[in-house]
Write a protein that binds this DNA or RNA. Sequence first.
DNA 1: AGGTTTCTTGAACCGCCGTTCAGGTTTGGC
DNA 2: GCCAAACCTGAACGGCGGTTCAAGAAACCT
Lengths: 206, 206
Amino acid sequence: MTTSSAAPQTAGARERILAAAVDRIASDGIDDVRIARIATDAGVSPPLVHYHFETREALLAEALEYSFELAGDVRIGEGQGAASHTERLAAMVDQCLPYEGDEQRDWILWVELWLRAVRHPELRPTASRLYVRMRKWFAGAIAAGVRDGEFRTAEPDRLADRVLALLDGYGVRALIGDIDVDHARDEIWALLAGELGLDGEPPRRA
Amino acid sequence: MTTSSAAPQTAGARERILAAAVDRIASDGIDDVRIARIATDAGVSPPLVHYHFETREALLAEALEYSFELAGDVRIGEGQGAASHTERLAAMVDQCLPYEGDEQRDWILWVELWLRAVRHPELRPTASRLYVRMRKWFAGAIAAGVRDGEFRTAEPDRLADRVLALLDGYGVRALIGDIDVDHARDEIWALLAGELGLDGEPPRRA
DNA sequence: AGGTTTCTTGAACCGCCGTTCAGGTTTGGC
DNA sequence: GCCAAACCTGAACGGCGGTTCAAGAAACCT
C-alpha cells in the first residue's frame, strides 16, 4: 500500500481535499480533474476548496507534491524485514515497477509530474527530491551489500542511477503495455545481478 | 531537424492544421491547446478545423500519431553518412536525447504520448510502432558492427532494448533538468561501450 | 454569555471555448 | 457555361466549470 484512497472523514477538510485531488489526478488525469468532483469525493462543497486553496492550479500542484512526499516515505520504508541485501534490493525493484494496483497508480502520477515539470519549473524540485531519495536508497543498499561481502565491489552511486534509469525506461514501457512488467523486472535484475556478481536467478516476487 | 514548425501555406489546409496542432501540443501541452489558436496558426478559421476533424479529441489524437510517423522516419534516416558503426550509434544516441531544440520538442511530445496512452489504449500502437522501429534500428546497427568485427559479440535485440530503456530513463531525467544531458549521454555510452568492447571514450557530439 | 475568528455552504455569475449554422467561394467534371 | 461537390468563413450559441458572494454554523477565547 502506498498512497491510495482519500483521507478519512475525521481528517481535516483541507487534507481530505488534497487526498481526493491526488486520487482524481491518478484516475482521470490532471486535465480532466474537476474541482466539483474533488469536492464531492472529499465530502465538501466546491467553495470550500477555494477557501483552502487559492486556485485550481495551486491545488493540483500541491496535490502532486503531497503525493510524492508520501510515496517516497513509503517506498523508502519497504523491504526492511528482508533476510538479505539481495532480497531487499529485489523487493525495492518490485515496488518501483508498474504492477497493477498502487504501483501503477503511483506511476501515472509520476508521468504526470514529468510532463508538468517540463513546463512548470517550480515542480522540478519535487521530482528531484524523489530521485535523490531513491538514489540514496539504492546506493546505500548496494554499498551495504558490498560491505558485507554479499555483492561484488561496484560503484554504488553510478549503479544506483543506472537502475533508476532502467526502472523509468522499462517501467514506462510496461505502463503503456508495450512490454510485460515481469519482463521489465527480469531485464533490470539481469543488469543488477551482472554488476553485483550475483547468480542470475531473480528472487521471486511476492 | 525533425518535425518543427507548421506546414507551409501551400500545403493543404488539413495538413497545416495537423502541423499547427503538433506545434501547439509541444509548446503549450495538450490540455492547454485551444483549437482557435491552432486555427490562427494554420491560417484558417475555427469552423474549418471541425470541417476536417470530427472533434477536438480526434484532431489531437491524429496530430500525435502524425508527429511520430514523421519523427520516426527522420531518426531512422540519421547517421547514414557516418564513417564507422561506432559513429552511427553515437549519432543516433545523440538524436534521441533531449538536447535543446527539436530533440527537446520531440521529447515533450513523447511524454505526452506516454501519458495519454495509459488511459487511451488506442494510442498505444503509435508508441509501440516507434519502439519497434527504434529497437530494430539499434539492433541492426549493433549486429552490423558485430558482423564487421567492430563490436564484440553481443545480443543485439536485448542490448537495443536496454539502450532504449536507458535513453528514456536518463532522457526524461535530463528533460526536467535533474541531470545534464551530456551526463546522460556519457552514462548511456559507457554501458554501450562496455557491452560492445569499445575503448571508453565517447565520440564527440556535433 | 458575548464577541471574534475560522470554517462551511447554496446560489449565482461569467468567461471561455468547442461546436454549430447558414450561407459564400472555389474546384472539377461534362 | 452549369451544376454539384468540396472547401471555407463570420457570427452566434450553449454549457461547462472555476470562481465569487453573502450569509449561516462552529470553534475558540475571555
